[in-house]
Amino acid sequence: MTLLDVRELGVRFGGVVALDRVSFTVDAGEVVALIGPNGAGKTTLFNVITRVYRPSSGSVLVDGQPVSRMPPHHVVRHGLARTFQNVALFRSMSVLENVIVGDHTRTRSGWLESMIPMPGTVREEAKARTRAMEMIDFVGLGDVAMRPVAALPFGTQKRVELARALVSKPRLLLLDEPAGGISHEEVDATARLLRRIHDELGMTVLLVEHHMAFVMGISDRVVVLDFGRKIAEGSPGEVQRNPAVIEAYLGAA
């Protein structure tokens, strides 16, 4: 079953063509990696899928529904959650609060209930807290749940972001360089975590990553972008042997 359907997607920033008629699909249950040299357009593609940008042409369908018709904050309601390449946490908040914000769409209290908390609000708040704590434990950050995120090391912050995305129980999880800028041990831990996210939580994953061992070890399928174009697609083994891919990486290096 096709969960994400990217069709002929084009994005232009002034004169720069960031994406040029990119098409691919992600089936439910898959782990798909999106790779390509720096500036290939991977983050831009994520930003279009999550409605940060509007495409210049083409479309993105989630479960057959066009994303471009949704306001940005509705994307998560359709089962899409993401992390950011450079980490975009709520800097003034604790780990727990960050993750509770990720639960925003599954809670209801409005401004009046927030200002005058009735028993219902208090109960909802407690439930949101429990769900957030579960996810914080799941990513292994139970010990730092009450800490302000701003003071945590980069690798830990990445996991907070992961928990914030997971708590909304997305069907499709979009991860922008989950292993970028973190230590070797953390990379291995993140790979194990992704396995569990896929196996235990049953989520479909689309991830951007430069770390090749990581990509090859975890993904069912790989899509390769270069200069905004899709140049290859296939199993990790196929893609690694593909001359166009080798050329793109050597050319870029």
């Binding site: 940060v52 946490l89 709520f90 908040m93 914000v101 769409t105």
Partner: peptide, 26 residues
Amino acid sequence: NLVRHRAGRAMRAIRDGEVAAAASGV
């Protein structure tokens, strides 16, 4: 009350980063 419940948290999230707040459904 406001700032430590859902509505106030959403406002603080927006202040800290609009893109991430919107991605969380705010």
